[in-house]
Write a protein that binds this DNA or RNA. Sequence first.
RNA 1: GCGGGAGUGGCGGAAUGGUAUACGCGUCGGUCUCAAAAACCGAUGCCCGCAAGGGCUUGAGGGUUCGAGUCCCUCCUCCCGCACCA
Length: 843
Amino acid sequence: MHGMQEVTGSIPVGSTTLPLSFELNMARPTYDPAEIEPRWQQRWADDALHRAVDFDQSRPKWYALVMFPYTSGDLHVGHWFAYTGPDVHARYKRMKGFNVLFPFGFDAFGLPAENAAIKDGIHPSTYTSANIERMLSQLRTLGSVFEFDRQVVTSDPQYYRWTQWIFLQLYRKGLAYRASAPVNWCPKDQTVLANEQVIDGRCERCDTPVIKKELEQWFFKITSYAEELLKFDGLDWPEKVVTMQTNWIGRSEGLEMDFPVALRAGGEEKLRIFTTRPDTLFGVTFMVLAPEHPLVPQVTSDDRRSEVDTYVATARNASDIDRQSTEREKTGVFTGGYATNPMNGERVPIWVADYVLMTYGTGAIMAVPAHDERDFEFARRYGLEIREVISPTGEPSSELTEAYTGEGSLINSGRFNGLVARSEGIQEIIDFVKSQGWGEATVAYRLRDWLLSRQRYWGAPIPMIYCPDHGAVPVPEDQLPVMLPEQAEFRPTGDSPLAAVREFVETTCPECGGPARRETDTMDTFVDSSWYYLRYASPQKADRAWDAEAVKFWLPVDQYMGGVEHAILHLLYSRFFIKGLRDCGLLQFDEPFLRLRNQGMITYGGGKMSKSKGNVKAPDEMVRSHGADAVRLYMLFIAPWSDGGMWNEEGIDGTRRFLTGVHYLATQTYPGDAADEGESNEERELLRLTHRAIKSCTEDIENFKLNTYVSSLMKLRNALQDASRTAAGRTMAYRRAIDVLLLLLAPAAPHLAEEMWLATGHPYSIHQQHWPAYDEGLIAAEEFELVVQVNGKVRDRMMLPVGVDEDRVRQAVLARPRVAEFLDGKSPRKIIYIEGKILSIVA
RNA sequence: GCGGGAGUGGCGGAAUGGUAUACGCGUCGGUCUCAAAAACCGAUGCCCGCAAGGGCUUGAGGGUUCGAGUCCCUCCUCCCGCACCA
């Protein structure tokens, strides 16, 4: 025994006094996580306890997925925080009777490995496999139920072979194409940068402002799905993510319309513009072309030529931060050319200015300074005319000090005067423009096609061959994978590293057998991650990307969990892939992820943990000193899973104490002689709090409110500890309550729960038990505490039987001396009774 | 600028319009100990009061209500996303 000393006495509990016997000075026997945790992990792995069963029709399936990590180094507590919640949820779903698929893999291609390779002179593949080993061993110590048998690694040739195959399917469908485009270029590192490597217009690595460079690139035609990607019907996604994607796609309805322009060389050309405000057409006082617009040279007059050329050259070389800043004063030059506004026949000057983007709409605008803030600013600066065509009063304003973008009616607009701006005005003018054949209603999207080629080494080679006679030819499918050559100079030189590997580049044309060159660019890693969740359905399949039946069985993903930083790119790309592959006839569903849940971020030392920032906190030491169960509970308890927060490990003692307490209750009171089942008040009370705990734990896990799930477990433990010191501690209800505590604890602290399950005389394994059910009828108490308010303040409380009728409540309350005191002789003007809760008296 | 989210004890946080501060950390007191740690027991929002008790309190200010952390209006602060998108 453990120096236990029995003391008897009494403590007041509520209004009654209960007999009591409790232990003093008891150093609680603790348990050794280092002994029990690895033991159970081994046993569960040997028994394949958590294996998903393909084609099992006897249970509902549940495909739970966490976003797979980059192989950039050790797992840190941020990863653990992210994975513990989903792990608990998956375990819970298994106990609820689901056939759960919960796989894990690694996003292994990409810049982290390449950068480490450049820095330390290690080959990216060596670096990557070392990290994978390390991360896997950490995940095992966490006691997670990820199914590692289905592991997917994107840099494995048996995986990227199918990434290349998918590229070819999309290419054949016309969804992948090659075109010249401006890309991000870092002048210092002499390399192209991925969009996500450009932070606020600067190179992520050297902080140099990035410029645009024109290069031949590969694109996926995601824009042809812009409209469908705006639909989220049937998806249970966070509002925030839906909004972000919707804004990113940026749908705008408007008018495309031609303005005739006289060319310098003689003749006439049509300048096409896009506007969302056709109702302001009579307010056009100038036109603006983007510097890259093809008509610029043709409309520029001889006397303006040198100035225009200089401006265009400067704009092309300007860095993104300079060009995109809204703070900067707008600049531009007059071309000397003129366009005609078909609406009123007026001649309007054509300017070039870099506030107009070649990449949106048609790269040209009609400027209406009176009703557009940007045009207003520009007109002010260059002394251009500002003509009001919309007025809130219907009368011209005396002076415009800023662009008026509000409601009003049309003025100075010929036959359209008096129409309501926006709604009516837009419609009528579009109809008129259409009837004249000047243009038509269109929809513009902010979304651009997905630039997928990278001039980088560590990625899947794009499976194309260039033949002098046959042009771009796809690599035949039976020649996949196009292997990434092991030896290559991957330091950035400004050229694709693969271009320097002769054995790789030199090949023959699949069409004619003549000499040909391979494509030397590799694919963006977002391509790899756009389909990995399909591979999990049949990861070992050697002769195809996926087994159609397995995909049909498991997909779509029921619940996808990860950081909100992937709200746009990864999730949008994945949705595009599914729709594209569906249209290739390869899939029969429309959306990859039915339900999406985002965890919050764990910050440390003022920011997101990342290896490059050096503020990483590893969980390993905590696991050694407190055990995986305590760390798991702490991860759940530290903050709401969806919020995250600042890392702080001071509270870990609390979850460890809790587990020690559970261990104590389960070992010290079992096996004891339980008295026959009775119907005592204590037993009914135990039953009540047990069912109450089941209810709140169930609801909390369902809703991913995992911090309150843990606090419910703690409340139940506290209550059982109190009960253990009374006669109630020797009843069947108490023993059942201990069982329930262990079952409810099992998803969060799987090792201790299993150990105690056996220690209390149950058969292996607790993880194959059913999640306990609760009975609402048993939760209801027999008495309730009525709160009495007088004039809005709580003045008294009293115990009453449940179901007591209102008249009796009123009588009882009005008879109370404290109530009389606060009524101070006045008679109540109004009495409100909320059944079972509160009685509010207004005097 | 536009869009989204959030402001509650010393700290992390909890609260279907109905007892604000659950649960935990920390702190303080106690038990045990030569002592300390651990463990256990208890107290712990703030102010006044010996006490009984009273008053105040959810970023600020108004409003609706018998009753507001929660709903409405005005404002402040912080975080996240997009940002010259015509």
